[in-house]
Design a protein around this nucleic acid. Structure first.
Lengths: 250, 250
DNA sequence: CGCACTTTTGAACAGAATCAAGTTTTGTGG
DNA sequence: CCACAAAACTTGATTCTGTTCAAAAGTGCG
């Protein structure tokens, strides 16, 4: 067994911290991530598959649109965004990714990434070489299933974003966004009521199809209504019900 | 070999036209569809996998949100739409599907469909039992690859829709929509310059995040500019360049 | 052939964008 | 560790795009 936190044995030739192994089997995210549903023997084989870590400083790219597909990535720690770009330079945030999320599946169709993925804070990722993943998932039906589930989950998530962008007003989009973050933090064992936004108002706006001024105004309005408390990037949800109602009604 | 158009042999006990076999290997869509990239031996095995057809009259559902995942479907002929629904009853078109498109991948993540899929004209679909597909794709690496490519393509398509909904104006959305249809018809051997819309203005509006009146107005404007000719559902693209420019600029 | 649905077009309205100015925060280098 | 510049945020006033409401005309299905 090996973990990031175990000191490197003095006798071993471990020179690169990035390559320190962290077994999936001992990872707290295993139930959210690629190995969900695998038994011990299977997990061991996945451990050997995922043998490379990648560290990114805030602002660094994991990949750019156009880069060839090498690997898929699982977020081990930190926070990322993916942006789609248009010829004319306009850019739109297509998603925010946190711990346990899988990245890079956009590249499978053409062999090249179709978006940019960037760290919004210092982050660590597990690199899953794609060709080995394909191979191993032929041998381990549970792994194959989980991979398919993960890709399908991304498709479903995208449908939700379409709904958001296509038929909600500014306040509804913001409520949906906050509740989504809240729920994802909760699923990871953090508070669902209090968290820090890792992105700027402009990035939220890009994701929600709104301008940054609108984001700012809606947050202020929610605060005045007593539904949330905002201070800079810190959010405290005071009336989750009210936010939910905003979505359910009409 | 067996095709839909061959008369059923009088001696055979073929009673259900829906079950008449049409081999993938003799299907004109094979290069667009699931068997793309397979050799003859592999194709033969996929033929045995896809042994059920399903006919839908215009307006009939292929599946509803909530239905359990049974199969994926390939559009053999006709035209379909998928709609996501919200608790409050609001509904949004998430995609239009034509010949060769694969449907149903939204259900893999949870085992239940997350959208409604409906025929917009009489349509025929190939039913691909999902558990057999999983199994066979473990045995045939090319099939596995193609399945992954298809799911990834759906993710990339969704990114495009997000871009459209999140950062384009009404006219740009409409131009993108028309050009996308045009290009997809062309890929299927039809005219890229002239085609019939299979959906109502309201459905286009729902897909593009606009109201039907806006769709009508934008089409009229395009027509006045001489960029297209619209008569009811019939569209003739006269200046594809102008439409492209509308997207590329700014 | 008629009724329901779809589409077009106009006029008034609303929500979000844009423009603008000022404030706060953050990150960097001295 | 502090000072400063750049980036991020807030708020107000104005503009504009697309929605809503309304009415009339066209289409097509049964």
């Amino acid at each position: 067994m090996n973990t990031t936190h175990a000191p490197a044995p003095a006798t071993a030739a471990v020179t690169d911290l990035n390559q320190l192994r962290v077994a999936c089997s001992s990872c707290s995210l295993r139930e959210l991530c690629l190995p969900a549903g695998l038994d011990a023997r299977e997990m061991e084989r996945v451990d050997r598959l995922v043998n490379q870590r990648r560290k990114l400083r805030r602002g660094e790219h994991l990949y750019h649109a156009g880069n060839p597909l090498v690997a898929l990535y699982a977020v081990r720690s930190g926070f990322m965004k993916s942006c789609v770009l248009q010829e004319d330079g306009r850019e739109q945030v297509a998603g925010f990714h946190m711990t346990g999320d899988m990245l890079g599946m956009d590249a499978i169709s053409s062999g090249r990434h179709m978006c940019d993925t960037v760290a919004l804070e210092d982050s660590e990722l597990c690199e899953i070489p794609y060709s080995y993943l394909e191979q191993l998932s032929r041998e381990l039906p549970s792994l194959q299933q989980q991979l398919h589930r993960i890709m399908s989950r991304e498709i479903v998530r995208d449908y939700g974003v379409m709904m958001l962008l296509g038929s909600m007003k500014a306040e509804e989009r913001m409520a949906a966004f906050l509740l989504n973050l809240s729920q994802r933090f909760a699923a990871r064992g953090y508070s669902s009521a209090e968290f820090n936004l890792r992105m700027t108002r402009e990035e939220i706006g890009s994701y929600l199809g709104l301008k940054l001024e609108t984001i700012s105004r809606v947050l202020s309005r929610f605060q005045q209504d007593g539904w949330i408390a905002v201070r800079h990037k810190h959010i405290r949800i005071r009336k989750a019900d009210a936010l939910h109602q905003l979505l359910g009604q009409r």
